[in-house]
């Protein structure tokens, strides 16, 4: 049986942490699994929790009155679900649902924030990892905004 520390060690998001730091992080985590369609997080809830996906796929979506559930992005193994726990007002902005069975490490964000405040070196390393995740999400989002696979614009002559 693997410990939470083992699972943290295996997960790509915590690659840059040393062993002691991983142990600290693991102290705020637990194993959680979700069935197909089950909600990991719901828009408007307090963002006290986040998830490191170990297996399976999660969709982030938002509910629009005129369009129903609209998917923003899917996340999978090696990725993090939930960034709102990092900064005030600590509120979940999007729904997260399991596509098929999903295995995660679930973290208590409050607990981890406390540890980061107490240990700035851990805080810095962890923030750096999360800044990397956020940067690549932002870049991906911008690239998708371009709708590059859409029909070419303008009046085509050929």
């Amino acid at each position: 049986m693997k410990t939470i520390e083992d699972l943290v060690t295996e997960h790509a998001a915590f690659r840059d942490l040393d062993a002691a730091q991983r142990a600290l992080v693991a102290g705020c985590g637990r194993n959680r699994s979700f069935r197909d369609g089950e909600v990991l997080m719901r828009e408007g809830e307090d963002a006290n929790e986040f998830f490191a996906i170990r297996k399976g796929r999660v969709r982030l979506s938002v509910h629009l009155p005129e369009r129903g559930e609209t998917v923003i992005e899917t996340l999978q193994e090696g990725e993090i679900v939930g960034l709102s726990w990092l900064f005030p007002p600590y509120k979940v902005r999007f729904d997260a649902r399991a596509i098929g069975t999903v295995h995660t490490i679930s973290f208590d964000g409050k607990c981890l924030r406390g540890k980061c405040d107490a240990d700035p070196r851990l805080g810095y390393t962890l923030m750096k990892s999360f800044a990397g995740i956020m940067t690549s999400r932002l870049q991906s989002t911008r690239l998708r905004m371009l709708d590059v696979f859409g029909a070419p614009g303008g009046a085509a002559a050929d």
Partner: peptide
């Protein structure tokens, strides 16, 4: 992966990179 899809899509949704 696709850029947009409804909730019935069970594959990846996100940028190709």
């Amino acid at each position: 992966t696709v850029d947009t899809a409804g909730p019935e899509w069970r594959g990846n949704l996100g940028v190709v990179t």
